[in-house]
Design a protein around this nucleic acid. Structure first.
Lengths: 181, 181
DNA sequence: GTCTATAATCGGATAGAC
DNA sequence: GTCTATCCGATTATAGAC
């Protein structure tokens, strides 16, 4: 690969990773091109030689965010499914550079975006359900557990009362727990 | 009450109800003062004799939206708790003028707002949990059911695949079902 | 209290130099 | 490819007439 092509690819990747992190934390409207490019160590003008629009960036950032979140979740624990669920529910306690779950954090952001974006989000969600299903071996239970865990994480992000937050997460862990590993 | 005071009160109420509906459907950033005032049959200039800012309006609109949603939910069904849960999960199928649940639809919008707004949202959520708790009589189960139902409705709003949406809602209904009425 | 008109700002997107 | 500078539309908020 020629040097400048490689350079372009790396720049694009930096933009994408910055976007994945920022969009998940602040939502589509909370992030400007400036913010993303600053975090990627470039200026706004350079953005448009990599992406057509902010929408396109968001579209591509969602699976990147999903991939990074899954990687970090699996790195932080053993192979036990119950431990994994516990870590998922407590993801907000992780390091500052932890990539939170885009399914939960963008859940009411996605509805306002265009159909292509929604379909991409839907695929990430479907992968999440499949992952649970591979452990519980019952699709209906997997769907309900997915809703519970995603709902719990999304709600936890809204709550200011720490004891209520802890109570909610513990309740959801208990309600979805006790599969064999 | 003097006529003009009553008139002011009615105008304020119209603004509040328009805001409750629009914010829940489109989120904070998706709604302009213009949109709200147009739906309330006024123009933008009049807004600021009723509210200090868009943020203040949003703050006040959340409990209004919660109240209207609860009213409509209870009107549409018998006293059975299982029927109520079914109707909650299928609220998107209601009339066009149905007020959807602000807890579910604003779930990832709230995090970006100021603390006063988050606390108000939290109180509406706490009321939701209390309501469930009065039927299941076990707080941990009530919290988990709340997360499942809210998560399910929020997810359903994101999905474009109708069969996946139906499958998800049915799974969550089954998982939270079977309390005595 | 409600209107029209306007100020002020912010952010997405483009142009052109290097 | 990346930069600086700029355009442009949208939107919050205010001013002043009625």
């Amino acid at each position: 690969m020629p040097w400048d092509t490689n350079h372009k690819h790396k720049s694009r990747q930096r933009i994408l990773e910055a976007a994945a992190q920022l969009f998940v934390v602040r939502g589509f409207d909370g992030v400007g091109i400036d913010d993303v490019m600053q975090q990627a160590n470039m200026t706004r003008g350079a953005f448009y030689s990599h992406f057509k629009s902010k929408s396109e960036l968001y579209h591509e950032a969602i699976p990147v965010a999903g991939f990074i979140a899954k990687e970090q979740l699996e790195a932080g624990c053993s192979n036990s499914f119950n431990v994994l669920k516990h870590n998922y529910l407590n993801q907000h306690k992780g390091d500052d550079d932890t990539q939170l779950c885009p399914i939960a954090l963008l859940i009411s952001d996605i509805r306002h975006r265009d159909p292509a974006i929604r379909e991409t989000y839907e695929k990430v969600f479907a992968g999440f359900v499949e992952y649970i299903n591979s452990h519980v071996n019952e699709r209906s239970a997997a769907l309900a557990q997915a809703a519970t865990m995603i709902g719990a994480v999304a709600l936890a992000q809204t709550l200011t009362d720490e004891s209520l937050k802890a109570e909610l997460l513990a309740a959801c862990e208990a309600a979805t727990g006790c599969e064999q590993d």
